[in-house]
Amino acid sequence: MSPLPSLVIQAERLVELGVHEIAGLTADDVRAFAREAGGERVDVLLAVHPDRAPASALAPLLRREDKPGFVVVDMPDVDDFTPCGIEVPDAPLYLVEGLDRGDHMANWSPEEALPALAKDARTPLLLTEGIHWLLQAPEVLERNRCFMTIGSRLRKANGSLDARTPAIWISNGTGRDGRERRDAPKVGWCWWGNRHTWLGFGSTTGRDGTRPAA
């Protein structure tokens, strides 16, 4: 996969898409953060905290073959999938380091992948981080090379975790997606214990310059 654009270019991309307005920030806020974080760096992703820019607002900004992204109709609670076991910087903007699509984990279940990522000192991406990645590098989403973002989970009222896990892939335009959405980026979900040959596991080595514990 090609490297990310520089942070200053990423900032302009977010401003162009209006992400700063979704997050309640000014364009100058985003640009200043990018410059101060090392504006020409191409090895990190600029992300907005999920509390500021939820998945439901970001997904429609995705594009593939000139078709907008969407959230599956049976995931109306997509924004209730929040960071689980992951420390996200307490800031509107932060950096995500060492991105990996996790192709080598294709045909693993989330249940199998999570401990393996931890063993390698990596943490799974949040759903919003995965969307941010594709906003900056749409080519990362390929047919048969898509990815789950199991850092975001839904906790039920009784404290247990919902068995659904978020993922981003490409619609085939079947069923309730609709023919007009064929080839569009799709935010959906998979079961915690199920395997899919075409889904890896997006992960990171750290956020905002920190690294997860081994």
Rank of each mutant, 00 (worst) to 15 (best):
D51V: 03
D28S: 14
P68N: 14
F33H: 10
V15G: 00
L61G: 10
D66S: 14
V30P: 09
A37P: 01
K119S: 13
E36P: 03
F33D: 09
Y94I: 06
G69L: 04
A34Q: 00
G102M: 01
E16L: 12
R31G: 05
L14I: 03
D103V: 07
G18L: 15
A32I: 09
V73K: 10
L14V: 05
V78L: 12
E36Q: 12
A91F: 03
H104I: 14
P50L: 03
V88Y: 01
E65A: 14
L25H: 03
L117C: 10
L95Q: 08
E65M: 05
H49G: 07
A118G: 13
F70E: 15
E87R: 13
D80E: 14
Y94A: 06
P115L: 06
G85L: 14
H20D: 15
G85D: 13
T123Y: 00
D74M: 05
E36R: 12
V73P: 00
E87D: 12
G18D: 15
E87L: 12
V73E: 11
K67D: 09
G102Y: 01
L25G: 03
L45T: 04
E16A: 14
H20S: 14
L125I: 02
E36I: 00
V30H: 10
D74T: 07
L99N: 04
D100P: 02
L58S: 02
P76K: 11
H20Q: 15
D74H: 12
L58W: 02
E40M: 15
G85E: 13
P89L: 01
R52V: 01
A23R: 00
D28Y: 04
H49V: 05
T82Q: 13
T123F: 08
H104P: 14
L61Y: 09
